[in-house]
Write a protein that binds this DNA or RNA. Structure first.
Lengths: 162, 162
DNA sequence: CAATTAATGTAATGTTATAACATCGACCCA
DNA sequence: TGGGTCGATGTTATAACATTACATTAATTG
């Protein structure tokens, strides 16, 4: 498997998403097993829905999808699963969109930098250490003890800008 | 007036907030006049409330305050004023908190980097060009045409960790 | 297999934000 | 100066996002 630490997406035309999805699910299962946490049917199904494509997904859209084969799903059903997946680093929340997206590299805990295309809505996860480190050093300089970065960049992706 | 381009807040003990507030309001009035846009009573009052302190303020808290001397204020009353102030760069929205904060340097349009103290809730606006430029160059490298940065850093401020 | 804890079900409600249409008021200009 | 225009605000309703609280079920452990 090619390293995903630099950039996940934007996807090329030949992207085999079925494969991408199955890889992510397998990886999640393995990760949870290793950590001794339970990737239940419900949680796996939510993860699968989040990974449906490379666009951020909204909680209530997930809820609607989920209801197709899980009658009786309610907001807490979805939010609990999302909380679990967030905690395990299997998905990220995009604050500026109130939406969720699959994590391109759940191997180690991290906070990515998200590139959001406002034309096609796709999101790429950049995980550039230089950016993270520059910010860490600048904030440290002024005595701020940073523990979390939220970096969301909106614009036009390579595919959409031709 | 000392340049505010590097960092606004965290406020020291001797911070004269009355003065800080009046400066910001005067600056806003001047800016709007220059641009030919109307800083109406309502908009100014909302700006004053946002500048009440150096913590982000929630829209419905503003609404409640506003109602004290503006009976009949409703959500659109507040959100319209916030939209105006955001557009004119007089305030910023903190995405990760769904809250609003006065802009430390409305002179030129910009997107700051926000340092959010999760202990005292104060927010400092860092406006470090190196960070902005590094991100701009990295994203450009991969063909992304960035037009907006959201950078929100949470942690413990110097005062709280001191 | 009983006890315990984690996960899920269920109903209600809290919080954040916008839509749609009516009215008011500032400004322009003939 | 009075009427037209457009931006601002009033008002009602509802959409969109998220959590609380408590009941029930399922997995895990001693």
């Amino acid at each position: 498997m090619v390293s995903k630490t630099v950039v996940t997406a934007f996807q090329s035309a030949g992207h085999d998403h079925q494969r991408c999805l199955e890889d992510a699910l397998a990886y999640a299962a393995e990760t949870c097993a290793r950590r001794g946490v339970r990737l239940t049917r419900l949680r796996e199904q939510v993860l699968r829905l989040v990974w449906g494509n490379h666009e951020p997904v909204k909680a209530y859209d997930l809820l609607e999808s989920l209801r197709r084969d899980h009658e009786g799903a309610a907001p807490p059903t979805v939010y609990r699963a999302l909380d679990f997946l967030l905690k395990e680093g299997l998905i990220h929340r995009i604050e500026s969109l109130n939406a969720y997206i699959g994590c391109g590299d759940p191997s180690s805990p991290h906070t990515g930098q998200f590139l959001i295309c406002r034309k096609c809505n796709s999101v790429a996860e950049l995980n550039d250490p230089e950016i993270g480190e520059l910010i860490a050093s600048k904030t440290k300089q002024i005595g701020f003890k940073m523990d979390h970065q939220t970096i969301e960049l909106s614009g036009i992706c390579p595919k959409c800008s031709g």
